[in-house]
Design a protein around this nucleic acid. Sequence first.
DNA 1: GGCTTTTTTGAGCGATCACTCAAGAATATA
DNA 2: TATATTCTTGAGTGATCGCTCAAAAAAGCC
Lengths: 190, 190
Amino acid sequence: MPRRPSYDRDTLIERARDIFWRQGWAGTSLKDLEAVLNMKPGSFYAAFGSKDALFELALEKYAADGAARLEALAEEHGALATLKLYPRLVIENGAAAAKACMLAKTVLELTAREHALADRANALLLEAEARFAGLFRRAQSDGDILESHDPQALARRYQSDLIGLRISAERDGVDAQAIAAEIAESLNRL
Amino acid sequence: MPRRPSYDRDTLIERARDIFWRQGWAGTSLKDLEAVLNMKPGSFYAAFGSKDALFELALEKYAADGAARLEALAEEHGALATLKLYPRLVIENGAAAAKACMLAKTVLELTAREHALADRANALLLEAEARFAGLFRRAQSDGDILESHDPQALARRYQSDLIGLRISAERDGVDAQAIAAEIAESLNRL
DNA sequence: GGCTTTTTTGAGCGATCACTCAAGAATATA
DNA sequence: TATATTCTTGAGTGATCGCTCAAAAAAGCC
């Protein structure tokens, strides 16, 4: 009976993710979103409900795509090789809207406002840390990392290093490739 | 002949730094600043000119205080001990308005807007990196770090790790103390 | 105390914020 | 083709944004 939407919802969420990722929550106005999504306010609110709701969809997509990418890498190269590859790949990825991690940016921007999206981003970061821990465990059972190391601790440090790396990659005048290489190299000493 | 201001300018800049540090640039409104500085708009603009001008003063104060603190530590404990102490101190500092680095937060928030304050924050970060490099050089001439290491590279990695650590310390559910201990410990292997 | 100079006050500026809603356009079913 | 249902449009909402400015209040100098 009805008229169908002229857009692909997933594509819109991807475009929203990219501009939110680049410009942040406060830095992205509805005018920005209307322009990049090619939607008037009425359609926007019919489709997504609010700016915050779309931001959350963008966060989930960001996290899900990252998880899928990591799992695909592990499938192809194995656990340790993935952990060593990932730092370089994540700052070299030309398709990415920004170098810095969207989840980390969101935590930094919205924690002081006690905004629910900050908690959501932090929860997604904890899930990512758990995935890293899983990879460290797999590397141990592959015999590539000593069993004496605590995979949780390795993952915690690895994620912290990644966050620092990705922010460094966003800066001018910093050789982030060198940092990525050192993070990868330090995994050889485990 | 004239009337004197009733406030201490340096105190105001400190209070502005703290709220900007916590809430960021966009997250801090003039109403927030008027409340925390106890100033009406007219006085504010007479004293500082603009929100951006005060933010820059806050950035400079943040960086200068950090540099002074680091130098005092080095004076008291020596270069290597300072580098090992600093990660823990920076996330334990109860007087700080936030755990994450204000310069890193500013770069993340304002780079996409191509705001001049992002470049200023990045420049101050580069100065901090140079100070770290100086400490690594001093540790080398103290015989505490092998001369074969490039102090510039060590400083670059150290700063990246610190940025990651301090963001991790801002998050819920992350044992930042453990990360700080590992960063310090890794300096023993140089 | 009178005068000069500065600070302080606060109403209010235009612009932008996220968002609403009634009317019109478009499309799948009958 | 007629009808029902949904999507699209865009002017307009009140609130808040950073900021201005003229008038009032305060303090140092004679």
